[in-house]
């Protein structure tokens, strides 16, 4: 199950990435331009050509979300869930830092997370 399924999202628009970025830019005022690969909410990375517009409106965060077979969607997630995920992210980072300082070695081999045939 994809991480976006952990959130209560609404689909506002569907199209190519360019159309979705344009939809956000023309419908919202409070916009932040973020880079490709940035984690917009816990477990969900931004995919597309930077700058990627992310809007904040009322109590929602609005961003483009891409699926390999289905194209790009503009999603709306309640800010409350965003704040919660942000807090979890900060805690995780803190834990990681603590672990690193405890281990001393610091660098963890990410390749060990990969599966091999």
């Amino acid at each position: 199950m994809s991480c976006i399924d952990n959130y209560h999202y609404d689909i506002l628009y569907r199209g190519s990435f360019k159309e979705c970025a344009q939809y956000i830019k023309s419908n919202y005022k409070n916009i932040r331009d973020l880079n490709a690969g940035e984690e917009v909410i816990e477990g969900v990375m931004l995919i597309g050509k930077p700058p990627i517009p992310v809007a904040y409106h009322d109590d929602y965060i609005i961003f483009p979300y891409t699926k390999p077979c289905y194209g790009t969607y503009v999603l709306r997630v309640p800010l409350k869930e965003y704040m919660q995920s942000h807090k979890e992210k900060m805690n995780k980072e803190k834990d990681k830092k603590d672990k690193r300082s405890n281990n001393g070695s610091g660098i963890k081999n990410i390749l060990s997370k990969l599966k091999f045939w």
């Binding site: 490709a36 699926k67 390999p68 077979c69």
Partner: peptide, 8 residues
């Protein structure tokens, strides 16, 4: 989407 994934 493939184009966007490659850029990302």
């Amino acid at each position: 989407p493939a184009v966007n994934y490659i850029i990302t």
